[in-house]
Design a protein around this nucleic acid. Structure first.
Lengths: 145, 145
DNA sequence: TGAATGTATTTGCATAGGAAAAAATATCTA
DNA sequence: TAGATATTTTTTCCTATGCAAATACATTCA
């Protein structure tokens, strides 16, 4: 069982991830909140939500709202975990807070699960050995070019 | 001096990077070689090359070839360095060879130079302390889900 | 040199993503 | 409960990327 029926695109993942987080935190996900969080217009979210419904990630009733299917839930959870891991990683190696969110947003959709697993090991390792972080931080200087 | 006139898109960067590498290794870059390397059709490369000419990254003479401007050279060099760094990083933390190229291809366009600098520190640190790599490798086990 | 072959370019089409304005529906409040 | 307000959806348009077929050009070799 390898790459079943077409992977979700980056934008699809962004939406699923965001919807999952909104449902976790508030119990529901409105079009306008999703749009706000993703910095796109509500009309774009509506279009995407319709596609995600067609693809079985959620159930959409126009004007009334949406809920994630178990497929959508499972994926959402995984995506949020991945996102958090990557934020932890960048933070741990000393990337400035102002760059973290945008960078993670950019790369999260483009790493194999193999890479994610290896980065998870690394994060664990660095968290368990804070003295390594100090040594790492001593190297810091940037190229600013 | 911050974000001057519109950053190159990922596809633009891919082309510039590839053209730079071809010129380094063979002295010139043909449309068909670029297309081959990027797994797109020559017609797509022609279109992109025309845009890169318009944007001042290279000089294009139809049917005759192209050369990078100094702006294109400088960027190409930087992009190749970044690509190589990211390959080193993934390799160093134990990502399987079969995933490395594609992952780097995916993420290289989405990291701030701040993150790149920090990853460079980390790579240096791990290269200088091979015992850490061993310890890191002991953690390896994947989630395969 | 002049056809055959190899390359490059043009043209037309398709897809994904998203903006903006207009229309539809829902919700709130007086 | 009927407007007023807020939200969502539809429609139209745009940009970026890339494929495929048709065309143009360049090179080679007989």
């Amino acid at each position: 069982m390898k790459g079943r029926l077409s992977m979700p695109t980056p934008s699809m993942e962004d939406h699923i991830e965001q919807i999952y987080m909104l449902i976790e935190s508030k119990g529901y996900a409105r079009v306008s909140d999703i749009a706000e969080a993703l910095s796109v217009l509500p009309s774009s979210v509506t279009k995407m939500v319709q596609k995600l419904d067609k693809d079985g990630f959620l159930i959409y009733e126009k004007y009334r709202g949406l809920t994630l299917t178990s497929k959508g839930m499972k994926l959402g959870k995984k995506l949020v975990k991945r996102h958090d891991l990557l934020e932890d990683f960048l933070r741990l190696i000393g990337v400035k807070e102002e760059n973290i969110y945008e960078d993670v947003e950019g790369i999260e959709h483009h790493l194999s699960w193999n890479s994610i697993d290896r980065i998870a090991d690394l994060v664990l390792f660095l968290e368990e050995n804070p003295e390594l972080q100090s040594k790492l931080f001593e190297l810091q200087q940037d190229s600013s070019n």
